[in-house]
Design a protein around this nucleic acid. Structure first.
Length: 100
DNA sequence: GTTCTCACA
DNA sequence: TGTGAGAA
């Protein structure tokens, strides 16, 4: 097992803290309508797609904030999404290697 | 309150 | 790429 307790808790935290779409919109300053559009495009995933209203976890909120910054810098939506996926994958990979 | 869908820029 | 609006 390469993950230590601290890193497991961090990933656990990111995936288990769930927030309603309206609160996500308020926090990120991104319209609900746009969040639903991104979900439709597969950039972000609702916790339970079959639920009556959408909820997102903190990992998704990180994505949302990063994607929006890249869009502001002129990236296409797909380009921004790829870059964010890449960064998160690399960071998570590094986190799993760190020994405290 | 939220979602869907269609139209539109 | 993102929004408006009506219906549900």
């Amino acid at each position: 097992m390469s993950k230590n307790n601290l890193n497991y808790s961090y990933m656990d935290f990111l995936s288990k803290v769930i927030v309603g779409i309206h609160e996500v919109s308020t926090i990120t300053n991104i319209p609900v309508r746009k969040l639903r559009y991104w979900e439709e495009k597969g950039i972000i995933q609702a916790v339970d797609p079959t639920a009556k209203s959408r909820q997102f976890n903190l990992a998704n909120i990180k994505k949302i904030i990063l994607v929006q910054e890249l869009l502001d810098d002129g990236y296409s939506l797909d380009g921004a999404a790829r870059k964010v996926e890449d960064r998160i994958a690399k960071l998570d990979s590094l986190m799993s290697l760190i020994e405290i």
